[in-house]
């Protein structure tokens, strides 16, 4: 456990992105926009926190596990949000009234 300033920087940036994602989840108007904010900010925020754990603990068991968890989150979180967006569109959730185009509905009719 070496104490430097690098883990603090990484973790503070990650926590800031997480909070921005949560605020976006509240402020944005419809489910697709909320999904955008939540996925991008929370995925990168969590990955940065886990990289901060790697920087704090070095190449120990904890660091390797944090690296594996970061790769896992970076792979699965966008996939989950894609599945949720598809499910929401098929379930019939309409786009926000200010949206300009919906090619998916034109092509598939769902």
């Amino acid at each position: 456990m070496n104490s430097g300033v690098t883990p603090y920087i990484l973790i503070s940036i990650g926590v800031a992105f997480d909070l921005v994602g949560a605020i976006g989840l509240i402020r944005l108007p419809d489910v697709y926009n909320r999904l955008q904010a939540a996925t991008k900010c929370v995925t990168l925020g969590t990955a940065l926190i886990l990289l901060g754990v790697v920087a704090a603990s070095g190449w120990s068991a904890m660091g390797i596990k944090a690296l594996l968890a970061a790769v896992f989150v970076l792979w699965t979180s966008p996939t989950g949000s894609h599945a949720l967006a598809r499910g929401a569109h098929i379930a019939g959730v309409p786009l926000w009234s200010g949206s300009v185009i919906d090619k998916y509905k034109e092509d598939t009719g769902r």
Binding site: F17, V20, G21, I23, G24, R27, L28, P29, D30, Y32, N33, Q36, A37, K40, C41, L44, L95, W96, G98, S99, V100, I101, D102, K103, Y104, K105
Partner: peptide, 19 residues
């Protein structure tokens, strides 16, 4: 992420969504 931060924290929500 900085793009989303700008859009979320801007008071007017500058978005123009579409598929």
């Amino acid at each position: 992420n900085f793009d989303v931060m700008y859009r979320v924290l801007h008071p007017n929500l500058p978005i123009r969504p579409g598929i």
